[in-house]
Computed example of a mutant assay.
Amino acid sequence: MIGGKFDHRNEICGAAVSVRNGKEKIALWTKNASNEAAQLSIGKQWKEFLDYKDTIGFIFHEDAKKRDRNAENRYTI
């Protein structure tokens, strides 16, 4: 659906958008979060496609599924 424009398109397996109390969250799901080179490449391209200037962070699924709202970013761009 959205992976076609990315260099590491085979790593992308889903996306979600969530709007909560004035805070929007866009999640792009990848197959292998530990592949740092692919994650950073995808993040840089995503920022470029969206013309997004702020920092984006990558949270591993294992960290997020603990339902810890303060899960820390493993990578940032």
Rank of each mutant, 00 (worst) to 15 (best):
W46G: 12
I42F: 03
I77Y: 05
E48S: 14
K5F: 04
S41V: 12
E62P: 08
N21M: 08
G22D: 11
S34V: 10
A38T: 04
K31E: 08
I2L: 10
H8F: 11
N32R: 03
D7W: 04
Q39F: 06
K5C: 04
E48A: 14
K53P: 15
G4P: 06
S18H: 03
Q45T: 10
G57C: 13
L28A: 07
S18D: 07
A64S: 09
G3N: 05
D68G: 13
E36R: 01
D7G: 11
E11P: 01
E11W: 00
F60H: 05
W29P: 04
N10M: 05
I59V: 14
K66P: 15
S41E: 10
I26S: 07
E62K: 02
R67P: 15
I59P: 12
K66N: 11
F49P: 08
R9C: 15
C13D: 10
I59E: 06
F6I: 03
W29A: 14
A64W: 04
G22H: 04
K25I: 11
N73P: 14
A64F: 09
I42S: 08
E72P: 15
K47F: 05
D63A: 14
S41W: 05
G3W: 01
F6Y: 06
D54Y: 14
A27H: 01
I56R: 00
K53S: 15
T55F: 07
G14N: 04
S18N: 05
D51M: 05
R74G: 13
G43M: 12
K31T: 11
A33K: 00
N32G: 10
K31Q: 10
I56L: 10
L40M: 08
W29I: 15
S41N: 06
N21C: 10
T30C: 13
A38E: 06
K23F: 12
N32W: 02
I26V: 10
K44D: 15
F6Q: 02
S41D: 13
R9V: 12
V19W: 01
R74E: 11
G3Y: 02
R67N: 14
A16Y: 00
I12V: 10
K44N: 12
N32T: 13
Q39C: 15
D54M: 07
D51L: 09
G4F: 02
S34P: 02
K44S: 15
E72R: 01
M1L: 07
C13I: 09
V17S: 05
I12C: 03
R74Q: 09
N73A: 10
D54F: 13
K25N: 12
A71Q: 01
E11I: 00
M1I: 06
T55Q: 03
F58C: 13
F60Y: 06
I77F: 09
F60M: 10
G14P: 02
I2C: 06
E24T: 14
K44L: 14
M1R: 00
I26M: 07
N73I: 07
K47W: 08
A16K: 00
A71G: 09
A16F: 04
G57N: 02
I59M: 06
K5L: 03
S18F: 04
